[in-house]
Lab assay of single mutants.
Amino acid sequence: MQRVNMIMAESPGLITICLLGYLLSAECTVFLDHENANKILNRPKRYNSGKLEEFVQGNLERECMEEKCSFEEAREVFENTERTTEFWKQYVDGDQCESNPCLNGGSCKDDINSYECWCPFGFEGKNCELDVTCNIKNGRCEQFCKNSADNKVVCSCTEGYRLAENQKSCEPAVPFPCGRVSVSQTSKLTRAETVFPDVDYVNSTEAETILDNITQSTQSFNDFTRVVGGEDAKPGQFPWQVVLNGKVDAFCGGSIVNEKWIVTAAHCVETGVKITVVAGEHNIEETEHTEQKRNVIRIIPHHNYNAAINKYNHDIALLELDEPLVLNSYVTPICIADKEYTNIFLKFGSGYVSGWGRVFHKGRSALVLQYLRVPLVDRATCLRSTKFTIYNNMFCAGFHEGGRDSCQGDSGGPHVTEVEGTSFLTGIISWGEECAMKGKYGIYTKVSRYVNWIKEKTKLT
């Protein structure tokens, strides 16, 4: 034993070699072989497995989906700052455009905790909710729209109204504003409101030439003092309507412009014939205590009207009353817009006519005020429907199939267009061939041609 100890002390290297040989010859039971080890760690190889990531292109799944990435790591994937920024906006807080917040056709661009709407022409605001041009839906104005110097929408209202708090709607500024039905039992019968379409306001006024200088022999019209197929109006439903009495009662109609003036057809009036105007009328054979009678003290036909040349060209006249009318729910003026808007309103496509005229061709006159909704007829169809001249200051309205029309005794009465609950004068009943005849239409004086003249002559002093 002493000898062994001496050998170990003198030859430590020998001992180490012996131990190493023993270990190498022993069977290893701690580690699995290569094949079995792979069965336990069965993990798919990654895209760049075996390579240094710093030297390969980034992978979106590896960089940002398996674990949260930084902007720089995302930049490695896209290799483009702009594309990385677009991805980053949604990656950080989701897609803010998912709810489609942009209105009126706006395009949404996502941002971090926010979004941006790219608005089409005519709109602005956070969600493109603000109209900035009158060309689109009248700028959301209830009545009139004008573009300011910086191309912003400025709404306005006709006389007797003021802008509401929203700067879009119009509200009454006087007790009985024009064009409004205020009798409670008839307010439910107000005709369907007309909503502004998209309009090209630059070209809204037709490029028409008034044929002022045409000389033409007097034409022989049949029954051209021209509501057939209409309905009984309720008291106060058309408070701007008046009836004219002269040699015979209810020979023509008219509309209240203001307390002192009536507008009617020029062919209705004769110099030297006494005319009485009755406002607030409903049943011409009954006294309903809503009527107001006034005498006409002055007749002003349009300066281009000449019955000797043509009885229905420039067929418009103004009547001055001896005493002002007292405005109330049964006696209310009709609204008159400017030339541009009167023309736009007419193009809405349908209007209402009213009167006490004959209820059928050569038949009896109506006792109760009649009204009828009539569609506008395109000019080409209008011209083809008659052998008589249709001037540019006239328009056609009615039904091709016949059966409904204005008729004798309705002449001078109103053709009105309702705009968001307020009625505007767009025409004056003038003439036609018979009444409600198939293929024939009622012919009306186009008020847009005469609004400046009306307003100039009827100013209240």
Rank of each mutant, 00 (worst) to 15 (best):
T158R: 01
V30K: 13
K68G: 10
E320K: 03
G13C: 13
L325T: 00
E73Y: 07
K109H: 10
F221S: 14
R364A: 14
I336T: 03
R294E: 01
E270K: 13
P333H: 02
A308K: 08
R75P: 07
I40P: 15
E67M: 08
D315K: 00
T386W: 07
N80S: 14
L383W: 14
W453A: 00
H400L: 13
R404C: 13
T290E: 05
W356A: 03
E193K: 10
N328T: 09
F144A: 00
V77Y: 10
G94W: 06
K440N: 15
T209I: 09
Y91N: 15
V174L: 06
E456G: 06
T218E: 13
K247L: 07
A366H: 13
N127H: 11
N452A: 13
K446S: 08
P301W: 07
N304D: 11
Y161Q: 02
W240C: 00
N203R: 10
N310G: 07
K459I: 11
D131V: 05
S114T: 12
E401P: 13
T389I: 12
G179R: 01
I336A: 01
T194I: 11
A279T: 03
N147W: 09
T29D: 12
E433N: 14
V331Q: 00
D405V: 05
D405C: 09
L367S: 10
V227F: 14
N222M: 11
I262V: 13
V269E: 02
R180D: 02
Q216S: 14
G442E: 04
Q185P: 11
I7D: 04
K459D: 15
L321K: 00
G253R: 10
L52I: 15
S423T: 09
H361V: 13
E53I: 08
N48I: 05
I275N: 03
D338Q: 05
G254R: 01
G254V: 01
Y91S: 10
S217H: 07
G230V: 13
Y352A: 06
N151G: 11
F176E: 03
G355H: 13
D93Q: 10
G412V: 06
N5K: 14
F78S: 15
A233E: 05
F224S: 15
E86Y: 06
E270L: 15
N295V: 08
F121H: 10
S217R: 07
S204I: 05
P414L: 13
E98M: 09
N147P: 10
C335M: 00
V56C: 05
R62F: 09
T158D: 03
L327H: 03
C117K: 00
R298I: 02
I256R: 00
R294T: 01
Q241T: 14
T190F: 08
K440E: 15
